[in-house]
Design a protein around this nucleic acid. Sequence first.
DNA 1: ACGCTTTTCTGGAATGAGTCAAGTAAGCGT
DNA 2: ACGCTTACTTGACTCATTCCAGAAAAGCGT
Lengths: 148, 148
Amino acid sequence: MPTDEELRDDAAARLRAAGLRVTAPRVGVLVALERESHADADTVARHVRASLGAVSTQAVYDVLHALTEAGLLRRMEPAGSTARYETRVGDNHHHMICRRCGVIADVDCAGAAPCLAPAHTHGFVLDEAEVTFWGLCPDCQTANEEIA
Amino acid sequence: MPTDEELRDDAAARLRAAGLRVTAPRVGVLVALERESHADADTVARHVRASLGAVSTQAVYDVLHALTEAGLLRRMEPAGSTARYETRVGDNHHHMICRRCGVIADVDCAGAAPCLAPAHTHGFVLDEAEVTFWGLCPDCQTANEEIA
DNA sequence: ACGCTTTTCTGGAATGAGTCAAGTAAGCGT
DNA sequence: ACGCTTACTTGACTCATTCCAGAAAAGCGT
C-alpha cells in the first residue's frame, strides 16, 4: 500500500504529463480514486474533503470532467447507478458488477478479438467494445444462501 | 409492416400469456416499442399519447417497469442516455450505438462462449454479459467526412 | 518575485429522469 | 352484472448533475 505522499507525487506527475495544472483538488481526486476505484462523484467529494478540507461540489465535477477529458480518468455509467470514475485508463478492460451490493471489479479483456468483431456491423465503424458482466459477488452469494 | 390492429392483438396476447391484465396503456406501450425500438420513456409516452390520447407519465413508467419485470420488455441504459426499452427479449443480443447521433442497432451475440467467460471471475457467479459497441453509424461517417 | 491565465469558490437556480402517496378508475373472474 | 383487485391519475417531491456569474485564489512561465 503506497503512502498518501507517494500517491500525491504520482498524481502530480500524471497531471503535469498531461499538460494540466497541478492543483490540490485535482491531486485529491486522483488520490481518492486510487484509494477507492469506481467511486461516484459524491464519494470522491467526501474523500477529497476528508483529506483537504472544504472543496466545492462544482470543483469536484469540474475536476472529474477535466481529468476525464484529458484521459487521466475513465468514466463509466453502469445501469442503475450514477457515473463512476477510475484511474485505470489506456487498457480497455471490462467490469463485473454485483447485482445485489453493486460492488464493481475490474476484468481483463478475455479474448481481444471476439468481443470486438460482431457478426453484422450494419455498416458501423466501431472504436470500442464495452463489456459489463452482471452477477453476484462472493459475499452476496453466501448472504443469499443464508436467506434461502 | 403489420397493421396497428395486428400489433395490438399480438401485444394483448403476450400480456395475457404473461398473466397480466390487458389495459390500453400496456398495449400502447408494446405497440409503440414495436414501431420504434430502443425508445426512452418520454418517446414511448409520446407515441402512446398519439394513439390513445391522455396517458399519465406515471402510467408509462409503471407499465415499463411492470412489463420489464414480467419479461416482456428489456431495459437498457447506455452511458450518457436515459433508460431505453425494447420488445426483443429472451435472446441476449447486444447493441451498437452511434457516438454522434445515438442511434442504436441490435447485434447478435457473435461467439456465445468467449464473452461470457472472463479470465478471472474473482469468485463472482455471472448471469449476464452485456456488450455495447460504440462507433459511428453509416450516416454519421459520411457526415463527418463532409466536415473534414 | 510578478503578473497573466486558469482554476476554484460561493451560492443560487434550473433541469430532467424518475419516485412516492393516496385517491379514482378499470379489468376480469364469478 | 358485481365486486375484488390491480392499474391509472394527480401532484408533490427527490436526486444527480449542470449552468451561471462574479470574485478570489493559485499555478507557472518569464
